[in-house]
Nucleic acid binder design. Sequence first.
DNA 1: ACAAAATACTTTGGATATGAACTAATTTGG
DNA 2: CCAAATTAGTTCATATCCAAAGTATTTTGT
Lengths: 166, 166
Amino acid sequence: MDNLPLDAETKALEAPHDHKDELRLWLRLLTCTTLVETEIRGRLRVQFEVTLPRFDLMAQLEKAPDGMALGEVSRRMMVSNGNVTGLVDRLVENGHVARRALPADKRVQVISLTPEGRSEFARMAIEHEAWIAEMFAGVSPRKVGMLLDLLGDLKRSVRKAIEDPT
Amino acid sequence: MDNLPLDAETKALEAPHDHKDELRLWLRLLTCTTLVETEIRGRLRVQFEVTLPRFDLMAQLEKAPDGMALGEVSRRMMVSNGNVTGLVDRLVENGHVARRALPADKRVQVISLTPEGRSEFARMAIEHEAWIAEMFAGVSPRKVGMLLDLLGDLKRSVRKAIEDPT
DNA sequence: ACAAAATACTTTGGATATGAACTAATTTGG
DNA sequence: CCAAATTAGTTCATATCCAAAGTATTTTGT
């Protein structure tokens, strides 16, 4: 009934683990993200009367002083084009963002922070960084470094699985 | 102009790092989560015509054979009460979930999977686990274990920061 | 007992989000 | 050149999502 040696060898070679740990890891990753995101969302709303998606969009623009095409924003934020259109509409309306058509290619809308948007973002970004530091304070710098590395591996793995036809 | 020894000691004692790594870690965490979430959402839609929030809710109910109060679902999913109300409405409508009032406390709505909901979820859960395994395949089991530990630390740190008045 | 506080959920109004269909502008192939 | 394909955004319908206000029910304090 039992031919243990063969089984053991098969086991060792074929790495039979059942992926429960991977599933647990995914759920834990999601929990961490949701916890941080919910807290940040609330603080941004209370202290700056801004939503998280708007803050994220402004953060993208801060890194591009010469402005950025909507499609580029959409790719970087990993959200749909239609989503960005609406987000930008509201940010233009409240004066944080300016949009201009590119003369060379009239399909392209380039957006950038207005001076008011830039200074408002600067205020928010300082607080935002402090909030993250506070929430991550219980993890040593060494462990933060390890997490950066390991999540880098994870990111590569996920991207590969998504892009490859398999 | 420079009293280096003092500065150096102060530096060492007061942990002078500037939290840039923590910020990078947060952004990387968010990227990983978004990548996985977007892919899972798409596959659930194409292969099972179900949305991710509905899948998540059904996953909660699967773990509670005797049903669960709406508030408990809301807490576990970390979403608002009103959100759950609408989600359950639609899941009841399509026959995956049943709701009943608790006789002992008429405020409480207990929901549970219907037989159809349970078998449909079983089909989806098998695929779902395989998708995660596929996406995480590039990370060794050892690193998966390390990530589980480190994200456990992170989760505790974030929870502490959120709950404590500081 | 019973008014006040707390609890469980629903409703409401507004902001995200998506995918698909659509419009306008540019590139490409022949 | 110019029709066909591509590209960049917008619009549309629908589904989340939240915070705040509202409703019904139960518990509490006295």
